[in-house]
Design a protein around this nucleic acid. Sequence first.
DNA 1: GCAGTTAATGAATCGCATG
DNA 2: CCATGCGATTCATTAACTG
Lengths: 320, 320
Amino acid sequence: MPHDGPSVARATVPRRFATADGRGAFLEGDNVAGLDELLRDGSGSVTLAYLDPPFDTGRVFETQGRLAVDGVSVAYDDRWSDRAAWLEALASRLTRIRELLAPHGSVVVHVDSRTSHYVKVLMDELFGEENFASEIIWRYRRWPSKTRNYQRVHDVMLRYRKDARVEGRWNPLYEDLAPSTKATWGTRKQKAVVDATGKRVRSMSEDQESKGVPMGDVWDIGVVAPVARERTGYPSQKPEALLNRLITGLSNEGDLVIDPYAGSGTTAAVAWKLGRRFVTMDSGEASREVVRARLGAIGAELLDDPREEISKDPRKEVAA
Amino acid sequence: MPHDGPSVARATVPRRFATADGRGAFLEGDNVAGLDELLRDGSGSVTLAYLDPPFDTGRVFETQGRLAVDGVSVAYDDRWSDRAAWLEALASRLTRIRELLAPHGSVVVHVDSRTSHYVKVLMDELFGEENFASEIIWRYRRWPSKTRNYQRVHDVMLRYRKDARVEGRWNPLYEDLAPSTKATWGTRKQKAVVDATGKRVRSMSEDQESKGVPMGDVWDIGVVAPVARERTGYPSQKPEALLNRLITGLSNEGDLVIDPYAGSGTTAAVAWKLGRRFVTMDSGEASREVVRARLGAIGAELLDDPREEISKDPRKEVAA
DNA sequence: GCAGTTAATGAATCGCATG
DNA sequence: CCATGCGATTCATTAACTG
């Protein structure tokens, strides 16, 4: 019984929850409505948007195992009539996100290796090809499946800048030197030596310790282990290490990070820990409860936040 | 002065070179003509086609360094009026390759992380989405560039089967177990234990040694170092290890492997070493000379092979 | 305590049984 | 006959337990 996901037309105003200090918020309801809510006075306010939409797998996912949420089993429904419908739903989120992004901001979409291509063609149109920044490969390890093919062990994340002409947010990250480099050079910096004619003659190592090599676009990060403390029971949970690299590299403290597909709340939890502001959204009860528990455990209890108070933005009233 | 690459319409018959035993051939000329030549009596004869076309970089590549070919500097011209023209040129090769493939055969296209998406959309149309097999990530290490972004350190290879309903060629390859697995399980196989009701209760290790984990679709292989013995001086040369994994996994000894963009002849060299038959093509003199030298060094001297003899296929004459 | 061992289970994938 | 389901496969990871 394929359907086309939650109706885009549904105009229900999302229910809002927020941390006591207002640094983080969860909007319960359709994320199109949630994004529209943000757009009311938040155009250009977002530094980083991370989207982890359902991958068009044609399946229904449920909360699992010992951590299953009581009385709530369906986490999300990933059945679509066809790819065009799936892409259209994604596009309606992305156009709103483009509006929300600050000039220095960027958006990262997480997809699998069967759908990334269609998403990039779409995003090249929406954001402009000149704003494509990276195809990031998440390489993980898992149990082997019986297949006469190379095992599928990677996901893809596509990053676009809002505007490549503007200097975007960027905090350099480093990773370990390659084993062969360590063997030859130790962990000291290399320095090219040039002769009088400008020709390179050799490299030598400096006294200074190298910070490692600048982070590449292939990330080897383990999946969240079935028994890890980090695990919430929500399906397809992403590792905190993954979000850490994105949020640290692409936003500063105090910046606003959004995630329209909250799921288990990894983006919110990492953003909070890193001192970023966040807004995350999900229509499922399962998500709301998992996120509430997860944030509570790190001192960011979500409280009911009546809309009336939120809509009173002093600047708006002055402007009117 | 952008142009649209070698004209597809040019009907020049390629000049043919072959190894003494006929196990390998080099066709000098436009590869469309080369593929048409193969199609004359080779439909369904190819087990593996590997294509490493120019990446639509808008640049002209030249032979380099100490190994530059005397008097021949332009290796290939990668300037196209637009992406559509580039894709169309690729499509005209791929439709011919589809014809050439055996039912158990497959094709691998090597592209970079900016163009892979358009190529997959094209190939989904040409080969059918159900025949998509893998997006293989080649992760390499290189000198870091100064960029406010994650370093680009991967290429992409797309594999399609000719016909997913047919059991394709497949020779399983293995890689090392993860360090954490070795620490917990040693190198012995794991086995799930189920109770009477069919519920999984625990896992245990078997006596049998594990062969390692089945090869994944992310390959960490070093680029051919500027001073490596493997190096030919031809630009964008691919490592032999890469072709080794493809040819070993996707073809058997005696199978026919083709590569319409010979370049430095890596496919030909590896196919020869692995006992496969091969046909490779290139229009450049630089390529022909590099390939000749490279094959000569491993005992596969290319000889002039007049067309007259080749067209005499005894089976054809009997059938006629 | 700390090191080594045991337990538990997952955005997999194919093949065969079942409707 | 085509769609759906469930069994079999056996790696990666970390918590919990044991000495």
